[in-house]
Design a protein around this nucleic acid. Structure first.
Lengths: 199, 199, 199, 199
DNA sequence: CAATAATCGAGACGGTACGTCGCGTCTTGGG
DNA sequence: CCCAAGACGCGACGTACCGTCTCGATTATTG
């Protein structure tokens, strides 16, 4: 996402870590403040971080990738599955996701990234790789373990299951502020496990 | 979304239909062209439509609502459910949606609207109400009919089912260009119907 | 020099005279203030005039031409030759020039324009045409009248004479602040009239 | 103008002569290339010379003095007066100057220096002292010898004469590219020698 | 011969100003 | 009352250089 050179530099003054941190900090501050993503302008970030605009552009190609990096810096790691019950583990994973999406600083980011995917495919790719996929992997783990232990059907199509479960949290049809009820995740997981057909 | 007065006007020159059409046309052209949503600026639309900016602002409050109206003008209406098999009807509905999402002019719009929902909640509301909800209603119909006819369990939670089914098409984790396979919808519907637990 | 359209405008809002004046005023203020030509940045002018940068760029292509226009607005018109004595008239004309060159707001302009002539030839042309040539014309008048009246030699090469007289005031070899003595102009004119050869 | 230490250094690595030359070369190249004085930025010089910016700033305080030094490196020394005829000697001296002014690399420099005199008085002083005054001294020599030999009037005001003669070559009123005709210098000298009054 | 000390190239730093774009509003003359 | 044209103040964009400041790597001269 970032352009920051991580290979050892050959010559010249090395990049300032202080600047790195100040920029990320300033970005998060602006993101949190009234105004949201729109309040994050490179000029504002530079001013608040006490940094030249150049210093930002040297590291990131634009505000989108800057924001994603800033988010990556604060997003909590996904919970570790306990491994006792597939149902409990799925609920735990999805609930963590539900809470992320409810945080205006984090939730809105997902949509932003998706909407600009056409313009900045690399950004979307990095976002998926660094923030989305690790969480999806946890769910894959749970599903595979369930299929192996006999709790779930053995021929379960894990990827399709992932789409059903994950999508249920994206499928907004109201303003983001309208949060999902607490028992929503449990209902989703149960319907997924039992199916719609009569048994 | 549009502000267009539909009540009979009392005095003065009536609004030009030519302008109306030219503006929508220009918007769709820009939307289709390389650059996507970002290429749609009011100035560009006005120039391409051969219209004053005022003429646009007289009808729409900003570019977001203009875009939504433009989309509404081309999005095909959802198919009518045949009513024979729940499975077939669901597949038909979801496939229509899958094809919409694959159209770059339409698919990207969904993400754009969501991402700007924080800034323009009214836009997101209108988008949901005019474009999303009618399609969701068709699926609700199918599910209710299934529950009544005994094909689905009688106590089916329709809204939760809607989230599972609809979300599976939003749950992108790659670039939008990467289209979903043709049998994807069928697999989703089957998993939804049968559930993950062993039967 | 300016780009201001002076032909009747066909459509659209006409250019604001208030803005015109405010911009010129601000330019002159900055020019007069500590810092001189260097303190005149488009941004500073816009800020002080309470005007958008765009409004300036709509009228002038850059700061050089803006400055020249500002100067033209304050430079006093050259004195009218009395017509009694060639010597007196020449002294009057050159003294006006000497006093212009001594004014830091005006004098430095001449050098600025010349130095940027390579980059902005049109600017230099306009400066010469609008500010320099009218004053040179007055001197031409005096010289021609002198040649006709028999006070000067009949075959006088007016253009060469102009170069000798005018140049004597440009031929700086110290800082501009070091002003020329009051009787300098008289000495120049006398040497020009009498020549260097023994008579 | 340069800051180059010429006293024997006590310790440490000596300054690289290669760098010295490369910098001057690069400066002249940029000066000669399309764009003129404006194209000479320290960054561009450093890049073209394959040198760090520090290496330039260690030797010169800014781009103005660098340019003057670069010019000094190529400006031909003034011709030695033959001493036979005042008229011929003056023509020789002024013609050398005329040819200098016609060279775009050298001529434009004069104007640049004058125009930035307000901001960098030291630059103007050095330019005058090192490049202008030696040439003016040659003309002083010629004039004094003429006054002593009786060819010119004994009470000739040498400094005023210098202004008349020298200024005639500066008194541009068109673009610098418009060169002066070849016989121009002769006409100036003759008018200076004979005067404008009828004899 | 090692220590010292100044220089080298490279390039990042905080800044200022640039000239452009698009926003949403305002203001013309003319249907 | 609408239309097109286009100017208005504004805010952000991304770029170019400024002059300063580190870096690690070379050189010469000195103790």
């Amino acid at each position: 996402m970032t352009i920051t050179a991580e290979q050892g530099h050959r010559g010249g003054r090395p990049r300032s870590e202080r600047a790195d941190k100040a920029i990320i900090e300033a970005t998060l501050d602006l993101l949190a403040a009234e105004g949201g993503v729109d309040a994050v302008s490179i000029e504002a970030v530079a001013a608040r971080a006490g940094v030249g605009k150049t210093t930002i552009y040297r590291r990131w190609p634009g505000k989108e990738s800057l924001i994603v990096d800033a988010l990556a810096a604060i997003k909590a790691p996904p919970p570790e599955p306990a491994g006792e019950s597939v149902r409990d583990d799925l609920i735990a994973q999805l609930d963590a996701k539900r809470m992320d999406m409810a945080d205006p600083r984090i939730g809105c980011l997902f949509w932003t990234v998706q909407s600009s995917a056409e313009k900045y495919p690399e950004l979307a790719r990095q976002y998926a790789e660094r923030l989305v996929e690790p969480r999806r992997d946890k769910i894959r783990q749970v599903l595979r373990r369930g299929a192996e232990s006999g709790e779930l059907r053995a021929d379960l199509d894990v990827e399709t299951a992932l789409m059903l479960l994950g999508g249920a949290l994206h499928n907004r049809n109201r303003a983001p502020a309208e949060n999902l009820p607490e028992d929503y995740v449990a209902r989703v997981v149960d319907m997924f496990l039992l199916g719609a057909y009569v048994r």
